[in-house]
Write a protein that binds this DNA or RNA. Structure first.
Lengths: 106, 106
DNA sequence: AATTTGCGTAACCAAAAAGTTACCTATAAG
DNA sequence: CTTATAGGTAACTTTTTGGTTACGCAAATT
């Protein structure tokens, strides 16, 4: 399973990975614990984990033979920055509309 | 160019599409106007536009033989909802930490 | 009326992503 | 010390994505 290195946007493009992130927001989980919740093999989950790790969405802690995945903020920030840009665009548009309406009201 | 129907997350997974969205935040543009800014053929741009349209990121207005693309909020909202969920998760974590620190301070 | 321009569509191709099975290693448990 | 368990890695397959060229059509232009 050669796991490609994907960026933050590509990470959340996959529904399974999004679901894994939601699950990890509830509690840290091992590879097998994650795999139990998906209709895919453990190596497949392992690959997704590696992808999410490289993009900064999770951190990994090995405890004995178990590998715990924990949510990490870094990956999300990159997506949020992009969304924020457009959020400002829309609120800016809204402000222009308000100004226009206020002018007409006078 | 059979354009697949992709969801909001898949739309922003592509760097070219993200760039197109940023450009459209500055002004509405036609297919050719967009294509001039990319190292790809017009049909390729046309396909991206269709994908972004179907996922609710842009609206399309035909004026004569020209097709104007204008930014639309719907697509962004779906991504924002996802990001908001985790944003609440992090601020929740932060609050717990604050509470803990306050308790120790007393 | 003839030509140019803007854009869509079809058929096709190459690269990448997402999955599989088979096999190996290391830790934990009996 | 033997066995079971947790998980990584390799090799391979299928599907999807992102791109191309070739062509057609309708709206402008001349």
């Amino acid at each position: 399973m050669a796991a490609p290195i994907l960026d933050a946007f590509q990470v959340i493009a996959d529904p399974s990975r999004r679901q894994m992130l939601v699950m990890l927001s509830k509690k840290s989980m091992t590879i097998n614990a994650l795999a139990e919740n998906f209709d895919m093999s453990r190596p497949a989950v392992s690959k997704h984990v590696k992808i999410m790790y490289h993009a900064g969405f999770i951190s990994i802690t090995d405890i004995g033979r178990e590998r715990y995945c924990t949510l990490k903020q870094d990956g999300f920030n990159k997506v949020q920055d992009f969304i924020d840009y457009f959020d400002k665009f829309w609120t800016g548009k809204l402000k222009k509309l308000e100004t226009l309406l206020n002018m007409k009201a006078q």
